[in-house]
Structure formats: structure tokens, C-alpha cells
Amino acid sequence: MEKTVLITGATSGIGKETAKYFAHKGNFKLILCGRRTERLESLMQELSPKTAVTTLSFDVRDKKAVFHAIENLPDAFSEIDILINNAGNAHGLDPIQRGSIDDWDAMLDINVKGLLYVSKAVMPQMVARRAGHIIHIGSTAGKEVYPNGNVYCASKHAVDAINKGMRLDLNQYGIRVGAINPGLVATEFSEVRFKGDEERASKVYQGYQPLKPEDIADIIHFVVTRPYHVNIADLVVMPTAQASSTVINKNV
């Protein structure tokens, strides 16, 4: 049976590759969400020949925009079976005493509050149907803290706690809740963290084979296609070269 999937942060990285992977696999209608309208439109044109696609252009930090967009979905997309809370960013890599308050606000607003806003907009219909699946894209930064990671790590630790709390609270309604926590994935993540400094960002992924967004898309698809009595509650995935946030086997 065809299911409707809502993906936040669908204009790049893991979100974009997940949309493409699901469209290729079939049996999924896609709601693609993001801030960059042109990218959303381009992705919709690319994927529409393969499956039904609609887009929602909003910033997850904007509570009113989130609720307005989801409450006004076209009828064909109004019942959301799977929510993939993928939108998130890191801003800066400074020791906490030199950290930017604007960076802190951005990370907490996007990674924590934005995830909550979207979930709050979607959960009532899942509760009413007593069915649904919510996937949070967390991070190994939500499992350990590394030097200069401070507030970013705090935001992802919050995602870890929300995942656990949501699974407890929604258990009585038969809703599956789980998190996928990647380590180093080669995306625009580091460019955002380093404010567009491409040279500095590229060095993060040199000397070893990082994960690709396609790897995480494949895992997300695996998770949501398990028999309904199976819930993958919390999964950590790292490249083979990575043992922890600070231990990476670089051979170059």
C-alpha cells in the first residue's frame, strides 16, 4: 500500500537523497519541505515522473508557517504515514566562552524547536488513526560531547531525549518512533558550520571515506519498511574509519 512521507530539510544532503531513494523504490508519495523554494521545485520536477510529489516551503523555526503549511496540504497528501525529521544544522565550532549567541539560537531553534513544531503538527492525525512512524535524524553528537561541540551537541542530546520521550508517550497509540544517528557524512553540513569556508569544510572529509547521504537514505528506507511489529528505536551509524567523534583513522 502506498504511504505518504513528509521529509524536512529535503533540499540538500540526507533529506534530498532520501527523497530520491524513496521515489526510486516506489510505493511512497512525497511531501518535500525546505526553505529554498527553487531547490524544492527542481527536486519535484525531477521526482514527479516517478511518484506523486508536493512541496512545502517554510523554515522549521517559524511556528506559524509550519502549522499553516501542514494544515493546508492537498487532500491527496493530507494523511501523513511517515515523518522524517531531518532538518538540522551546526553553526560554528568555537569553545563555549567564545561562542556566538546567534549560532546558539539557530541550532536550538532548528534542531530542537523546529523538530518539535513539525512533530506537533503531524502527531494528532497519527494518534487519531493509531498508526504512523516518526524518524528523527540525530547525530553521534547526541551520544557524546566533543571539544568545541558544546551547544550543537546539546541540541542533538535533546533530540535523543525527545526521541525516547516521544516513543514512550506515543506507545499507547501504536505509533513507531525511532532515531538514526549518523557520524561523519559528506554533505553541506561543514560548509554551513564554517560559514561557507569551503576549504576548511573540505578538510573535514579528507584522508578517509566518510558516509554518503545515500548510505543514510538506504538505512532510513530499511527502517520504515520493516514489518509493523518491528520498531528500530535507536540506531548509530559511522563510517568504518570513525570510532568516535574524535577518533578517525586518516591514512593520508
Rank of each mutant, 00 (worst) to 15 (best):
V236R: 02
I219Q: 01
N231E: 12
L211Y: 07
S244D: 12
V127H: 07
L116V: 06
T37W: 00
I216M: 07
E198A: 08
T140I: 15
M166N: 09
L115G: 04
L93G: 08
E38S: 04
C33G: 02
K120R: 09
V66G: 02
K20R: 15
A19V: 01
V60D: 11
D215P: 05
E191Q: 09
H133Y: 03
K16Y: 04
G165Q: 06
T37K: 01
I220T: 05
T4P: 00
L211C: 05
P95E: 05
M44P: 02
F77P: 05
G165M: 03
R193V: 06
R200S: 02
N89R: 14
I7T: 06
R226D: 05
N181E: 14
G174K: 13
R226I: 10
L56F: 06
F22T: 03
A69P: 04
G132E: 01
F67K: 01
I96K: 05
D160S: 15
R130Q: 14
D160E: 12
K250T: 15
Y208Q: 04
P182Q: 12
L56S: 13
K50D: 02
A241N: 14
I82W: 09
E199H: 02
T246A: 05
D59A: 12
K64D: 01
K143Q: 15
N251C: 13
K64A: 03
H133V: 00
C153I: 15
S119W: 02
Q97S: 12
Y21P: 07
Q172W: 01
M123R: 07
N85L: 10
A19N: 06
H157C: 15
P49S: 03
A65Y: 04
G92H: 07
V66Y: 00
E79A: 11
N27L: 01
D62P: 00
L211M: 07
A76N: 10
M123C: 11
P124C: 11
D160C: 13
I248E: 01
K113P: 08
V230S: 10
K143C: 13
E46F: 02
V252F: 15
E214S: 08
A217Y: 09
D215R: 02
L115T: 08
I180C: 10
A52W: 07
D102M: 15
D75F: 11
V237F: 08
K120S: 11
K250R: 12
V237W: 05
I175K: 09
I219R: 00
P74I: 14
V224Y: 01
I216D: 08
N85D: 15
H68F: 00
V223S: 03
G174Y: 13
A201D: 02
L83F: 10
A179D: 15
Y117P: 02
I7P: 04
Q172C: 00
R35H: 05
V53T: 11
K120H: 11
